[in-house]
Design a binder for these strands. Structure first.
Lengths: 245, 245
DNA sequence: CGATTTATTGAATCGACTCAATTGATGTGG
DNA sequence: CCACATCAATTGAGTCGATTCAATAAATCG
């Protein structure tokens, strides 16, 4: 099922027509990518809005000397910046982590939504605002949290975001990130990421093995990461907008 | 003059009616605040969109144990998140740094813009996208740049953003941030901020004294901070939207 | 299976931090 | 308008978290 619908339904109840519209978004121009492939590069002219249907991707920035920073992860159901085509060129790159299925949503489609699908338009704004909140939290993470807090925090965030789109099973989820990826996302060296993960493991806060993450007690991991889910704005805040079935 | 108009005019040529609308935004509910006053606090219900008319403010987040991170600065002409009232509660706080004049733009006003002022609506989207790009760059800054690169980068950004709204004079600008503010924004300790500033001073990259910043050679400071202005998207990219005078 | 990527470990180093004291500004009330 | 109080900036010394370099082990892939 389209993970975008799944996610939006957590925020606002959609009408069948709304759902049809979102299904159409996810069946138009759809592309398959291999792992570790760039979808868009810094400097490119932005074209469509990308919607991740399956697989993981990330936004990253890079300095001349090679230092790389992952600035956000795209999980299934995530979209890149709405209205990005207003800008002349990309200020960051987007690349896949795993093989991924990505729909390119053309500008006209978004115009159509804004004109006639107010609930979806609001859900898209919600998505935009949550995206911004996540970026702020990452700044907090990099600026103030210690290595293990930082790692615990990131893992909590990913776990919750995956759960929102139904990609967890109990207290486990697929976890395709390498320790290098985690290093680039947390601003730590990969050696230190390794040691930090071991610390979380010996504290029995996580089990991370063969691309699977298990969180025995989300509560404990959250407390280790000073994690407060408020910034993800996951309660059904848009209920007053519900479509009547 | 309304710094918002000034800024938007760098992106798209507005019609006299557009300008009138923006002037109205800046003369409706306007409030004066003293320095170091909270405008909104984490947990509050978001009401209006705030527009900074004069003075400096910032967004910040705080942990239980007191660690504080400034996640963005608001300079004259900046607005807080558009459509923030979609969310149930604030995930961060907003506070002034200097005394400030701030207009509260009500929801209805923004609806009006979206309905009948497409150029302004686009300019607001541009503002939103640039805001997101700045947040990403801060993540890069915190994750990858060394202390002095980081500081140089931040100073470049502030200088350019001030210049965009006409608040620089030659290579100088007012600079009300304390070293503690800089510490909270860069994720460094204030002692290290002090030493980092001294380093930039002895490299003759900045003169910073009595709340005034002078940048003898922006080019050199940019290169010290590995600064690329692309993320600010300052060229007149919206020219195809220009109003015909 | 060998080749390559990913993960792990140890040792030495360094950037940035903490603690603590001092100096310099700014501001306020008597 | 000075004296005192407060806040901001500076300096030194010692420490610690995280890094780099380098080597090895384990996992994954064609």
């Amino acid at each position: 099922m389209n993970p975008l619908i799944r996610k939006f339904e957590k925020f606002v109840r959609l009408s069948p027509i709304d759902r049809g519209m979102l299904t159409r978004a996810a069946t138009g121009r759809v592309r398959q990518y291999g792992p570790r492939i760039d979808i868009a590069r810094e400097g490119d002219q932005p074209k469509d809005v990308h919607l991740i249907l399956s697989g993981w991707a990330c936004r990253y920035k890079q300095l001349e000397d090679g230092r790389r920073q992952i600035v956000s992860f795209f999980l299934p159901g995530d979209m890149c910046d709405l209205n990005i085509f207003i800008l002349k060129e990309m200020d960051h790159s987007i690349g896949t982590i795993t093989p991924a299925t990505i729909a390119d949503v053309p500008r006209e489609f978004l115009d159509e939504i804004n004109a006639g699908f107010p609930r979806i338009a609001t859900a898209l704004w919600w998505e935009t605002l949550v995206g911004a909140a996540i970026q702020r939290e990452w700044i907090m993470n990099l600026g103030q949290r210690t290595a293990s807090e930082r790692m615990a925090h990131l893992l909590c965030e990913i776990f919750l975001r995956l759960r929102l789109v139904g990609l967890t099973e109990g207290n486990s989820c697929e976890f395709p990130l390498t320790q290098s990826d985690l290093a680039e996302a947390t601003g730590l060296s990969k050696v230190h990421v390794n040691r930090t993960l071991q610390e979380l493991r010996t504290g029995e806060l996580i089990v991370l093995k063969s691309k699977t993450l298990t969180v025995p007690s989300l509560k404990h991991l959250m407390s280790a990461g000073l994690f407060h889910a408020n910034y993800l704005h996951m309660e059904r805040e848009g209920s007053h907008l519900d479509a009547n079935e």
